[in-house]
Design a binder for these strands. Structure first.
Lengths: 188, 188
DNA sequence: TCTTTGGTGTGAGGTAGATCACACTATTCG
DNA sequence: CGAATAGTGTGATCTACCTCACACCAAAGA
């Protein structure tokens, strides 16, 4: 169960057995059902999540129109959360919802802080992860500015073919920032 | 000259005099003129830049249409770069151009690596910085999905009034992902 | 000083994509 | 099994924004 986490970390930063034992004890394991909210817009965010199985979305719901805007999907081996709210102990702007039954390793902010303080190596790991996330967000911004719906859809299919297969088009549309009708009409 | 850098780092991570001396010696100082390219699309990226004075943009130019898409502005006390290219020693996808005469502290990748290895504290500092950058990019993505041109312009004015004053509207339009004509017609 | 370059406003017309509306087919679940 | 719910396709409008075109003014450089 924790071996996935260890392999994930060691792709970036090798650890001794004692070091990983120290890492491991800060996490707890949790299961979630499809449709379950792991984080709820407007509530506090107890944990940061590392996914072992399943599929989740990070979504902003406009309180007036009820329209959904998907910021990110996550699956096994990915981290996902409303980091802003988690890290500043404020109320979540987004919800994190299971699109399939999901299993995750959970890290509270106190445990995160203790982990960083007790094992500086782990800062290196998270720096790499967050940097990759930042660069990917930057690419997405550029893609939203330079490309039309059709091109963005094709880019998504090319970059994440597995996501595109597991997800209904409605969800893909909410991620691409396009109406589901428009997505349905593409590649005619 | 380096005191700006020290204050900037110590907002997040206090340093002893020896530690800062170690930090300082990895940077070099450089001046740039308005219109000068600090990073050129298609070339390698020698340095990461911490700005002391001036104003820069990080811009992608479509090779076919010559249209500009601005990913970020930076001014004193900000970091800016094509990090992807810098960090992977690949050719830049973006240019970084001075919009005013600019002074910067420059950090080569080798120096960056040496700095991280020699002073683990600095990983903590960069993790905080990159996290803030990631969250800001995420907010921008959401704003592009939920808001129209008018609203995005107002958000920019509210969040960065100083930027809006120093920059011509053409540049703001290229940042907002709107044509300059549309921006000119807003708030009528 | 005169000429170039940069910045801005505004009209006219075109279009990608939103919205609304309805129909049809899978799935899920009591 | 039968009923609700989720997912998809498609037509008919509507609109925010783009593109092209031209005119004007300010600043900069030779």
């Amino acid at each position: 169960m924790y071996s996935t986490l260890r392999e994930h970390i060691e792709k970036i930063m090798p650890l001794t057995d004692e070091e990983f034992a120290f890492v491991e004890k800060h996490f707890s394991f949790k299961k979630f059902k499809k449709h379950q909210f792991m984080v709820q817009q407007g509530e506090l965010v107890p944990y940061n999540y590392f996914l072992l199985f399943g599929l989740t979305k990070l979504v902003y719901t406009d309180p007036d129109t009820d329209k959904e805007y998907i910021l990110a999907f996550a699956m096994q081996d990915w981290w996902d959360n409303d980091f802003q709210a988690y890290y500043t102990k404020t109320r979540a702007s987004f919800s994190m919802v299971c699109l399939e039954d999901t299993q995750a390793l959970c890290l509270s902010l106190d445990d995160f802080t203790a982990l960083r303080a007790g094992l500086p190596k782990i800062e290196h790991f998270f720096l790499e992860k967050v940097m990759a996330g930042f660069l990917s967000a930057q690419r997405r911004i550029l893609s939203m500015m330079t490309s039309n719906a059709q091109q963005r859809y094709e880019q998504l299919l090319a970059q994440h073919p597995s996501l595109a297969q597991r997800l209904p088009k409605t969800q893909l549309a909410a991620y691409l920032g396009v109406s589901r009708e428009t997505l349905s009409r593409l590649s005619e």
